[in-house]
Simulated assay, not measured.
Amino acid sequence: MKSILLTPLALTALLGACAEMGTDVDPILDGAPNARFESDLAACRDLARNQSQLDHETMASAALGAGIGGLLGKVDEDGDALGGAVVGALAGAAAGVSNASDAREEIVLNCLRGRGHAVVG
């Protein structure tokens, strides 16, 4: 029963710890930044922060990880299906959060490009 309660808590802690991931990218510019760059960067980072990490892809990754972990735990002679599911869910959620972080980074870079900054990476 404790494992069932710990899974949502661990997922919440994981997402909370990664709240800024992807938004703190330091873009590489082709040339010197203009006077608007810092304010545009702050606005683009805010835009990226508003994109949820707990999206359908992250939830699907967690569910898939839980299923695979549960099956592996059940098959293993010394394994525990519930423990495997918990570990699998955490691993899947971590992968989903990583993908969301990459998407946030792209949002910041594309936003700056859209505002006329020569961002190369």
Rank of each mutant, 00 (worst) to 15 (best):
L90C: 14
D78I: 04
E38C: 02
A94D: 13
A118N: 12
A81Q: 06
A35P: 07
L29C: 01
G31W: 12
P8Y: 05
L54F: 11
A81G: 07
D80T: 05
G67H: 04
G16R: 15
V108Q: 00
L82E: 13
A17F: 12
G65F: 11
V119L: 00
L29Q: 01
R36F: 13
L109H: 00
A95E: 14
D46F: 04
D24M: 09
A100L: 03
H117C: 07
F37H: 11
L14M: 14
D24C: 05
L64G: 05
L15V: 10
T23I: 10
A13G: 10
E77A: 15
G84W: 06
A48E: 04
Q53C: 02
S3C: 12
E106G: 12
L47N: 01
G65N: 03
E38H: 09
D46H: 11
A42H: 03
K2D: 14
A60V: 08
E105S: 09
S101R: 00
P33V: 07
A118C: 03
L72S: 05
G70P: 06
L47W: 01
L112R: 09
L41T: 04
L41S: 10
S98W: 05
G92P: 07
D80H: 13
T58M: 14
D80F: 11
L112T: 08
V120C: 03
N34P: 00
S39F: 06
L82S: 12
M59I: 11
M1H: 12
R104H: 04
